[in-house]
Design a protein around this nucleic acid. Structure first.
Lengths: 249, 249
DNA sequence: GGTTTTTGCGTGTAGTTGCGGGATTTCGCG
DNA sequence: CGCGAAATCCCGCAACTACACGCAAAAACC
């Protein structure tokens, strides 16, 4: 029996019965438990089932969960997220933008953390909601279907009313000369407001976006307090930013 | 029975009856009391139930997972959703609450519909976002993790500023004498505001919730314009509502 | 024919469950 | 109101199961 075939069989079974047991499957298909486990792992990675101890459940089990679709260069983003999380302390007010890096960070937040997270990004909010001790504030307004984030004057006005301790920006392009740039006008307006409102601005960016430029300017480098990439801080690529007085992690 | 599966079962039971007893559960599922207690502990840690001596209470309705129940009631909800959709017209401003019935309706919206949907319910918003021609307005504020909806004075203030053509309420309990009642104080405040703001109030409820009462009052029957259940309008169960001048679909 | 993928196995690790014993809460009754 | 019995809870333990990881054989692929 081929791998694909097997996985299709499992999937069908899961969708029919809402659950499968690894032990039953392996005797049924006549392969080792490891193989079944690997199959379930694969299916879980694709978001088609939810793996649990002893088997798997239908992914429709969890009503609200965005497809954990293959995040682009996820390992790197996990490194970034880990560094970013080290900046968090209990009791903080945290403002975040959208983007997959932010979502990755949201997923990795320690369960013990007690803080308030503010965002207009739907995927990020979904992750925050799963956390047991985090207060979640949703910034409302019209939803931009492309970026899955609330945009508009209402959202900007709301952000101006708050004074978060720290602000995490998922970044599309950053350059020592041009600062942060982006390609969606409405999102840029929002990010500007976020930067102005916050006591401390942290910029999350994978290395391949460093030294790139997008058409619309968000802010100059002097607004950035901390820059986080997956590279070690002393990497030559990041040298120019340290020279500008930005703390590099 | 898998651990998660068991917990889902317990959760469903809690949401249905508003309470569970450890002793009953353990004989029902055939595991030791310790296991049940650990499950309740886990669920309580995630904020999904409130643990008390001897069992657990509903921490308002929390609908992560209910495949067995959902499978049964989904057809009913689809009937309701279909009737509700017949009330929609292009260009309308539509305000909706949360709840699985509303989500079902969101999934079934005709692709050709062009309208503006306003809601604070995260699951509903996710569905609206997938629709090609719908404008989505998100009402922001603190998120209630239990009901997955934004609650608080900001959200209420925002709703008071708008004047939607029609408002769809997912209903937990409706009774000819007591009107609409619910069990989450904050959600009730929000629903009150929604009812006041809207030109027309449509109440969606599956028949098993008709003639039931929850602790907190939302509104009297005279605020309701239309009542939709999965039953035919002339069903005797719905007679009292017609007599009160409510249009029954 | 060499390379990649897939599979099964062994080993050590982690998760889950039921049980016993002692602390705590609840509740009826004098 | 206080007391004692019963139920319930909490904690640590041990048995059992399931899991991850690395490795080598087998299969499939090119």
């Amino acid at each position: 029996m081929l791998k694909k075939e097997r996985q299709a069989y499992i999937l069908q079974k899961v969708n029919l019965h809402n659950k499968v047991l690894s032990s039953l499957l392996c005797s049924e298909i006549n392969v080792s438990e490891d193989t079944i486990r690997r199959d379930l792992q694969d299916l879980a990675d694709e978001g088609k089932v939810i793996k649990v101890h002893g088997g798997a459940l239908s992914s429709s089990f969890y009503e609200v969960s965005l497809p954990p679709a293959a995040v682009y260069s996820q390992p790197k983003k996990k490194i970034i997220a880990k560094k970013a999380i080290s900046l968090l302390e209990n009791g903080m007010f945290v403002l975040t933008s959208g983007g997959t890096t932010i979502v990755e960070m949201a997923r990795m937040l320690p369960l013990s953390l007690r803080a308030t997270f503010i965002s207009g990004s739907i995927p990020a909010i979904l992750e925050y909601m799963h956390h047991p001790h985090i207060e979640v504030i949703l910034v409302g307004d019209k939803i931009s279907k492309n970026s899955k984030i609330t945009v508009g004057s209402e959202a900007i006005a709301k952000i101006k009313q708050i004074k978060p301790d720290i602000c995490f920006l998922g970044t599309n392009a950053i350059d020592p000369e041009q600062g942060i740039t982006d390609n969606d006008w409405e999102v840029v307006q929002l990010k500007k407001a976020m930067i102005e409102a916050s006591r401390k601005v942290v910029c999350l960016s994978i290395a391949e976006k460093v030294n790139t430029i997008q058409p619309i300017k968000v802010c100059d480098t002097n607004k950035i307090d901390i820059l986080i990439t997956e590279l070690p801080p002393e990497s030559p690529l990041l040298e120019p930013f340290s020279a500008l007085g930005i703390k590099v992690l």
